[in-house]
Design a protein around this nucleic acid. Sequence first.
DNA 1: CAAGCAAGTGTACGACGTATGCCTACAGTG
DNA 2: CACTGTAGGCATACGTCGTACACTTGCTTG
Lengths: 231, 231
Amino acid sequence: MERTGTPGKDAGTGRLNRRIVVRAALELVDADGLEALSMRRLGQALGRDPMALYRHAAGRKELLAGVVELVLEELEVFPDDTDWQAQLRRMAHELRRVCLLHPNVVPVLVTGPLSTPLGLRPAGTLKPLEQILGTLIAAGFTPVSALHVYRAFYGFLYGHILNELQELVADPDENEALLRLGLQRLPLRDFPHLRRMAPELLEYDGERELDQGISILLDGLGQQLAVSTGR
Amino acid sequence: MERTGTPGKDAGTGRLNRRIVVRAALELVDADGLEALSMRRLGQALGRDPMALYRHAAGRKELLAGVVELVLEELEVFPDDTDWQAQLRRMAHELRRVCLLHPNVVPVLVTGPLSTPLGLRPAGTLKPLEQILGTLIAAGFTPVSALHVYRAFYGFLYGHILNELQELVADPDENEALLRLGLQRLPLRDFPHLRRMAPELLEYDGERELDQGISILLDGLGQQLAVSTGR
DNA sequence: CAAGCAAGTGTACGACGTATGCCTACAGTG
DNA sequence: CACTGTAGGCATACGTCGTACACTTGCTTG
């Protein structure tokens, strides 16, 4: 089997392994989007026949699960901090950071769990759940309460990230024109408010929005905890 | 052009229009999932050549946007209510209800906006935004504040719905076995808490979870409003 | 060295979205 | 009535996709 003269840094030389394959997949997705990830394209990028990839990933879907796992591995884990609220805030910003680095992965990161029962998910994708459980249980929450907080927290977080990624645009000027035009096109009778909110819509600060959202959540949680403790 | 003898209720008889096409697409997705929706399958279901569908939808992606619009049309709009918090709670449950009716549509409902700027979205998909803006502005919020509340609220809502749909299972007994097995498979060192939380994980009440989440949000909002009003 | 296994490839199939050009039916107009 | 324009539909084909299956190659181990 001749392998010399194949283009690319590591492509075509040495044996593949799962990590190499998944990493190349992530690079492809980051560069050209989810739909650009085909087994043929990936095989080409690695200097291999596409069929070779099936030695390292069961199929395209499972490969994408590996990509998600790889992205979540980039989440930094923090030393134990006694302030669980500060911890949650940090985790939120960390997930935001990672998702902003890999915006094209977010759709599959967010919808993947819909088609994979928790018992079948790759361990790496369950790390955030374990992390929050650990943080909250260490802070005195019962496992049930910790789980409820996780659901509310991550529910909001995913929603926020989806919102923020919508605001990412290549060209802000072009976006403004498009938005104003699009809003004008809406029927006045049905959209009296939205039609005149272009300035507000154009002003978006994702980090601040996230901070405010987390504050709302934590305030509300604080109040609920006070209520259930005061009983 | 002979049209007689074509199977199906309305399939094959009369002219298509966009509504018929989009509705048939929704039925296909509801029955067999998003991936089952191909132009060929849809054409077959309608007793038409797949190429005929392009007269009514620009392409598959735009067709899916129409499906989402159709689903959002099912959201009931309520008479004006002076209690904006009760309104928000109702809207949340209404969206939940509709999403539970069409779980297969949720992935595209949630991720669609990532690839379509707001100015290019079908008007129907912007109805929820307008509704919340209207409700909050009528309750005295400024447009900016209303927009921020919308983002926090809908962010949480989408996250909650994604969570809840994960919990939908065909066979609860099989799910339990799978979950227990899956949790046991996790390394104890990395997942000390999650590994023993099968009972808690198995107990899920989506409606209650949503109610509690909304309460958390509204409490937190109430507190933030009190802070900014007390300035 | 031989056997076994992991990694890789050749070939092909069924399926996909949609470009392009042509056909049919119908409505409107002179 | 004949003609034109338009909406709806279809035939053909192309490039692309995921992956089944069988075979080949390379490496490791006894």
